[in-house]
Design a protein around this nucleic acid. Sequence first.
DNA 1: GTTGGTTAATATTAGTCCGT
DNA 2: ACGGACTAATATTAACCAAC
Length: 370
Amino acid sequence: MASSFTCETRDQGGSSGEADSPTSGGEEDDGGEEDEEYQEEDADGLFCDESQNDESDDDDGDCAAGGGHEDGASGSVGSFIVDDGSGDSDGDDEYDAAEASDSDDDADSVALSGNSSQLARGGASGPATPPRAAGTLSAVATVRKPLTAAGKRAAVSKGFSEFNAAVFGGALPEDMTVSWNSRLRTTAGLTYTSKRVVGGQVVRSARIELAAKVLTDAHRVRSTLLHEMCHAAAWLVDGVNKPPHGPVFKRWAAKASRAYSHYAVQTCHAYEIEYKHTWQCTECGSEFGRHSKSIDPEKQLCGACRGALVYKPRRPDGTPAKPRKASAFSSFVGERYRDVKKQLGARAKHADVMRALSAEWKAAKASGDV
DNA sequence: GTTGGTTAATATTAGTCCGT
DNA sequence: ACGGACTAATATTAACCAAC
């Protein structure tokens, strides 16, 4: 299951790299030596879907119209051909889908992800954007080989040096910080820019943050890295970070796209987030993804048609899996947990309860009760 | 309309155990 | 190794209000 995420510009007010920022607090060359580390910037991290563009703060409003996301690496469940793992040797799995974009495929997050209490009320608060129906992809997409954490680090390290030489003429510092953020869910990458005055000289710096949950394969990692490096170059080379996707950024993006046509750096993208857990509407077939099993089908309904939801287990590679029946012990935990917790008292920790349940389970097995 | 602060609701992760 | 059960803690998001 996947759901795209929107483009956003988390411009935290006054964080402009320019000295005219009203709230940047001492951006002026006041001779001060302190690091004026203002946070910043670009958040948009790329990626937005035209259908969600009203949410975007994208300065230039240019959200990769047409042609769409060069990179939506997935589609609805059941429409995948699983990669055989024979990706190219450089780890840059090429995208061989005919065209996997479906511009409204993020709608499910409106209905469910955005506000599941709304969903619980059966969408009582107004018309929800219809979730994506299953099987709407006309083309067959390829699931790229997921990268491990080490693989991601390697892809970043290799990609940075490679892009820096091929696109930016080595203008970016090789020791620039590129870190991973495991909490970003709707943004694929961020470039933070800062400026300080050292001995009367303005020194600009930048760092890149990538979303571990969003960038799950080499193509996404490299594509996003390239995009963020364009922001970094706009700031470090040209001294421009506003608007984030203005002419300066676009100049670097065009250069990057010429060098790496399969990455086509755009102002917005629409990767889709791979979810571990998926629920499907029994009425309209819409799917809803979560990173944890946080949806309760007993309480929540499909936001589009109010149909009942059923859990749809999946394997890590994205293929549907057969639901595994809860083991006897799991059922036992479900039945007894509350009572045992009560017996042990409010101060009992989860581990204590589980140990007690374990002992109780063994005793029950020994006596033949289970 | 935008921004910033607070609060409440929701989503996610971590961590226990056993079974497959 | 992963998935079933579950809770607690934490992070994120949305909603609301006031001030500019």
